[in-house]
Amino acid sequence: MTVKFGYGSPDKLGDVPAILRLAERADRDGLDHVSLSDHPYVADLLDGYAAIAFILGRTERLSAFVNVTNLPLRPAPVLARTASALSALSGGRFVLGLGAGGAWDRITTMGVPELSPAEAVEAFEEAMQLVRSMSDGGRPAPTKHYPIGDLRPAAVAAPLIWTGSKGPKSLAATGRQADGWIPGHAADWLSDSFRWSRPIIDEAALSVGRKPADVATIYNFPGAITATPVRRTRDAEGRWIGGSPAQWIEELTDAILNHNAAGFTLFPRGSDPYETQLARWSEEVVPAIRAAISQPSPVS
């Protein structure tokens, strides 16, 4: 069983020294991925693609992705070429995180016309198809939202695509096209939104001859990793708030073995320093979970 463990990086202009220090530590400690946000309309945030390119250049094993790409601001044909370049430069360590676009009041400040919800989802699904068709073995063809000309595919394998779908139509597009799904609003396997969303993905996957397991669930997972156990690891509404390394290990091992969780991106919360919590994640929590899920099932 391969489960991905990563973290969400700080992403402010003033965070650059910490961003690089954390990435190098995560790479050394054996984490799988790092993610950064994509909000180009915010002046004090780093551009997500510039940042992950730099991180990939400073690391050897760590994968990186934008969580998630603001598609209306990064047209799919150009995004496909960016994906090919990052994959080639990093030896295949780039993952394409993709969303249909939210916060249109902010997106339009960048000079991009607003799409209707239906148009945004159409463009989202076409973008996934286009990225693959512009990769090794593909045949790029014009679509409704991307009327491209005569383009050749790049001789680079297509990246994994993980989406941040939320609505029914974009969830269905994820089921038909994507390799992974990142539930929105930090929803986890016990949340109502997960319970109604995941079946839409599974049904859509089956409708095109795929298996539900072809679309992994990778959770954005905020919480505090504390030095000592806490009395309650979830709040009154059932959201995970954190606990000691042992409490994290128990919770996430159960999520993997009993709820088909395929990955986690940690977003540290609480009063302990970010770097301290990331060290607990990479040195204590993740190795123990990997060991637990690698054990053979008991024979009945």
Rank of each mutant, 00 (worst) to 15 (best):
T253G: 04
T59D: 00
A157K: 14
A261T: 01
E250G: 10
R290H: 12
G6D: 07
G101T: 09
S35A: 11
Y146F: 15
D179F: 12
S63F: 00
D202K: 09
L171N: 03
L31N: 11
L252W: 10
D44K: 07
L151W: 15
P287E: 01
F194N: 11
G14K: 07
V66T: 12
M110G: 03
G238Q: 09
Q277P: 10
I107P: 04
E126W: 07
H145L: 13
R106K: 13
R21L: 12
W196L: 02
I200R: 15
P77Q: 09
A279F: 04
A224I: 05
L79S: 10
L46V: 05
I200A: 03
G164I: 07
G91P: 05
L89T: 06
R231Y: 06
I201S: 10
V3D: 06
E24C: 14
A51H: 06
A279L: 04
S135R: 07
A227W: 00
V121I: 01
S207Q: 05
S271M: 09
V215S: 08
R195P: 00
A83Q: 07
G8E: 08
F65S: 06
F221E: 08
V285L: 05
D29T: 04
G91H: 01
F124Q: 01
A80P: 06
T228D: 15
L31A: 12
S37V: 15
P17F: 12
A213K: 10
E275L: 11
A76E: 03
N220L: 12
L171A: 05
T108G: 04
H39Q: 11
R210G: 09
Q129E: 12
R152T: 11
G101M: 07
V68N: 04
L46T: 03
W189S: 04
P168T: 06
P273K: 08
A100V: 00
D11N: 14
E283Q: 14
L96W: 06
L89F: 11
I293W: 10
D150Q: 09
A213H: 01
V95S: 02
S133M: 14
E125I: 00
F5P: 03
E203A: 15
G102N: 07
S165N: 08
K4E: 13
I201F: 11
R234V: 13
G48Y: 04
F5M: 00
G30W: 01
P296T: 05
L257F: 02
D11W: 00
E275K: 04
K144Q: 13
I218E: 14
T143P: 05
G184K: 06
